[in-house]
Nucleic acid binder design. Structure first.
Length: 566
RNA sequence: CGGGGCGUAGCGCAGUUUGGUAGCGCACAUGGUUUGGGACCAUGGGGUCGGGGGUUCGAAUCCCUCCGCCCCGACCA
């Protein structure tokens, strides 16, 4: 591509709205332009990167014997009613009507459609297993789109769905995809980790997220320094070692005027935070529940949701708390609650000298013994993990890192096949329900994640396998016949060798061209300047601050070496 | 959805408090001088000041209303 013929709209300033580095650089370097909140045009440079990402994805999916198809974006409401998700999905779904007033949506995901296709075509165990995938736009009317391509309302996703005869088959399909994903992100040159995760509203049991490690990541992952354990902190199991406890003392009510928060109470009573008990009140599916946890810990709501097996969990209103306890929220107590199950964090099993509310304004109890005083208590792992906690696998030290989720693999089981009646006949002619898995990769997000991980103060540094072009040829002095002709010749030679080359033939000063090249992030730059008189050009890799002089005849082999040496 | 902020040329911003009919830098066009890391000089094009309504002789500026965008939070296959 000649720059004079291309749309490469680099900017000197960045729009004020771009907050994170990938958004800033992708806009500044001329890759994307916004059309509405969370909705972007992919300009030619971005499209080239996306296609490379897609190519790697396709190669690895095909190698895993998955088959590509293309499902509709516009989907009928009836299918979503069948799975029950038409009502569940809520405002996040883009909904529309056709001229006959029939309901449709823009697909936020494709479980329903694919299951519909498969149930219509697959009738026998001989047709299984099956893994089908597509690369296509998804639509989710996010409450808050943000961070450019990171959380858009329209985005590109590769989604795959596996159909197996049974759970053993699913395990195989799942592992195949897990391995494929590891190869995919590895080939893209990304520093990533697969972590155990929560399956959220999509349901299912086992699930791993593939996280690109980057400062701006929305997710926090905990990984072990000693073993291979890694998980999203949303689900990281907290280990509570057994311990001896001393003899319990008598419960004692003490005055704590105007001390409502744990910090205030602990300071006032001169006890440490690990001897306090926090009482929280939630509504789960409209039912009031009470949770207790050590005062210096945080509750992990996802763990609580899993224990309660509910999707909807909200904090109780202040009024509801007052009604239930007949007391101000700062002093409510788990002691004296009748007929209400108290969900306690495991740590409280060993708490027999705790401070907790006395259910009376201005008073707390001392020496509370959870097992003795708390009525109906059930213990679960409910607290949030902290950096430095013990690894649940090997006891090693857990450390935290920020990650961007670029892929997730799920074992769905029969959640959708059951609702949508996706069945087959086994060898005995007996009807069986298909067992499903689903596997997503955020293609457009992966491009942004890649920038988050590969940049410097000059611009983007694309990994060689997904760079929009492989090499840029820069004549220093376009008016100089020799320089320009030699640059042209080199450019043509690179093209005929099959390289994706750019010729910066603009009548710009060299500084402008260099800055654009660095900003856009071509992995290689070849500068044709004065020394061309002696047949010398300058060869520079974007990720290396040193350049080297080369005889022009050596350039092709040097470029080959750079790209084939892996 | 709650809290905060913003909307003036393609981008970054000033002008709004105190109403008088729009300006700066970059980018863009033309000419000239330059030429190895975002040059300089000269000339020029480009704006219904987010939309609508109102107050006023007169509104970017004051009032009402709607819309859009960003940040924090809640939420997030």
């Amino acid at each position: 591509m000649r720059v004079t013929k291309a749309l490469l709209p680099t900017l000197r300033d960045v729009p004020a709205e771009a907050e994170i580095i990938s958004h800033q650089l992708l806009v500044k370097a001329g890759f994307i332009r916004k059309s509405a909140a969370g909705i972007y045009s992919y300009l030619p440079l971005a499209l080239r990167v996306l296609k490379k990402i897609e190519t790697i994805v396709r190669e690895e999916m095909d190698r895993s014997e998955a088959q590509e198809l293309l499902l509709p974006i516009i989907q009928p409401a009836e299918l979503w009613a069948e799975s029950g998700r038409w009502d569940v999905y809520g405002d996040e779904m883009f909904r529309l009507k056709d001229r006959h007033d029939r309901d449709f949506c823009l697909g936020p995901t494709h479980e329903e459609i694919i299951t519909d296709v498969v149930r219509g075509e697959v009738k026998s165990y001989k047709q299984l297993p099956l893994n089908l995938y597509q690369i296509q736009n998804k639509y989710r009317d996010e409450r808050r789109p943000r961070f450019g391509l990171m959380r858009g309302r329209e985005f590109i996703m590769k989604d795959a769905y596996s159909f197996d005869r049974d759970f053993a088959g699913l395990d195989v399909s799942y592992q195949t995809m897990y391995d494929a994903y590891s190869r995919i992100f590895g080939r893209m040159g990304l520093n990533f980790r697969a972590v155990e995760a929560d399956s959220g509203a999509i349901g299912g049991d086992d699930t791993h997220e593939f996280m690109v490690l980057a400062e701006n990541g929305e997710a926090t992952i905990a990984y072990c320094e000693k073993c291979s354990y890694a998980s999203n902190v949303e689900i990281t199991e907290c280990i509570t070692p057994e311990r001896e406890i001393s003899e319990s003392k008598e419960l004692e009510k003490v005055s704590t005027p105007d001390k409502k928060t744990i910090e205030e109470v602990a300071e006032f009573l001169k006890v440490s935070g690990d001897n306090t008990i926090k009482t929280l009140v939630f509504k789960a599916d409209e039912k009031i529940i009470v949770v207790v946890i050590r005062g210096d810990r945080s509750l992990n709501e996802i763990k609580l949701k899993r224990v309660l097996k509910t999707d909807i969990l909200e904090k109780a209103e202040e009024e509801e708390i007052k009604e239930l306890f007949n007391c101000e929220p700062g002093y409510i107590s788990p002691i004296g609650l009748k007929d209400i199950t108290i969900y306690a964090d495991n740590e409280l099993k060993y708490m027999n000298d705790g401070v907790c509310g006395a259910n009376e304004e201005g008073y707390h109890y001392l020496h509370a013994d959870v097992n003795r005083d708390f009525g109906k208590v059930e213990f679960y792992d409910l607290r949030e993990v902290n950096e430095g906690d013990s690894c649940p696998k090997c006891g090693g030290n857990l450390v935290f890192a920020k990650g961007i989720e670029v892929g997730q693999v799920f074992k769905l089981g029969t959640k959708y096949s059951e609702k949508l009646n996706a069945k087959y006949l086994d060898e005995n002619g007996k009807e069986q329900i298909m067992v499903m898995g689903c596997y997503g990769i955020g293609v457009s997000r992966t491009m942004a994640a890649c920038v988050e991980q590969n940049y410097d103060e000059k611009g983007i540094i694309w990994p060689k396998n997904i760079a929009p072009y492989q090499v840029v040829v820069v004549p220093v002095q376009v008016n100089d016949e020799v320089q320009f002709q030699e640059a042209e010749k080199l450019y043509s030679a690179l093209l005929s060798e099959g390289f994706e080359a750019v010729l910066d033939d603009r009548k710009e000063r060299i500084g402008v061209k260099f800055n654009d090249a660095d900003l856009i992030g071509y992995p290689l730059r070849i500068t044709v300047g004065k020394k061309i008189a002696e047949g010398i050009v300058e060869f520079k890799a974007r990720n290396n601050s040193e350049s080297e002089d080369l005889n022009i005849n050596e350039v092709i082999s040097k470029v080959k070496e750079f790209y084939l040496n892996e």
